[in-house]
Design a protein around this nucleic acid. Structure first.
Lengths: 111, 111
DNA sequence: TCAATATATACCGATATTGGTATATAACAA
DNA sequence: TTGTTATATACCAATATCGGTATATATTGA
């Protein structure tokens, strides 16, 4: 009858492209809200709201300095995603290997 | 003014826990809709609808056999997620290393 | 105190999403 | 043809989400 929560776990937080963009921006190091706003050229409330989601999920942390809030990425919260997706890597690595095999076969035949 | 699409890319498809569950179930190999339904004990329309999303995104592929539809995972579509999240691995590996250093220091001092 | 800067928050409208129930569709069997 | 199985789809209600605009809050400076 209802929608199951959301935006409250890393998978959902990161499903939104703009939030991924923010995390990428913060990957370089700590940034002020205004610096993010300037860097991405988005409306300030938009940035603040997405930062709010990221913070709730723990993907970013906030430090205060005067009237500024300095945000930094807390990548450990991405580990669940990494851990979930990594086992599947086997599958595409597999098919790459098969492709390599095919290419090898082709090259052999060309000789 | 509006919500930006969604559910139409791998990140969003996988943001829904039930869809992750389905992918995990399919990781073992091809399965019939009914087999998934029995395995997860969810209502059949729910399974079909989530499979629909996964299929639209290309995370699963469908094969027909009589009145059955046999689904299999197409993990290559997870590669974008893997590729996006992997660079961040550095961060938590880093902090693990630091933790290791700390532990090493402590052990040295204990001697 | 008053103005300015930095950031968050409240509110709104449009839309998307999910689960549930009922039903359609297709394939098979008798 | 008729019934049964396998699966998808249509429809609905409840709610979450996103962007935009306006405004609140806090800090600093004059």
């Amino acid at each position: 009858m209802a929608r199951t929560s959301t935006t409250h776990d890393p998978f959902n937080a990161v499903a939104e492209p703009k939030r991924r963009r923010i995390l990428e921006t913060l990957a370089g190091g700590e940034l002020t809200v205004t610096e993010i706003v300037d860097s991405l050229d988005w409306p300030q409330p938009m940035v603040s709201k997405h930062l709010g989601v990221l913070k709730k999920v723990g993907l970013v942390e906030e430090r205060r300095a005067g009237r500024q809030r300095i945000y930094r990425v807390n990548a450990e919260q991405l580990k669940p995603i990494f851990d979930w997706v990594t086992p599947f890597e086997y599958y595409w690595r597999e098919s790459f290997n098969r492709l390599d095999d095919v290419l090898e076969e082709l090259q052999k035949k060309e000789k």
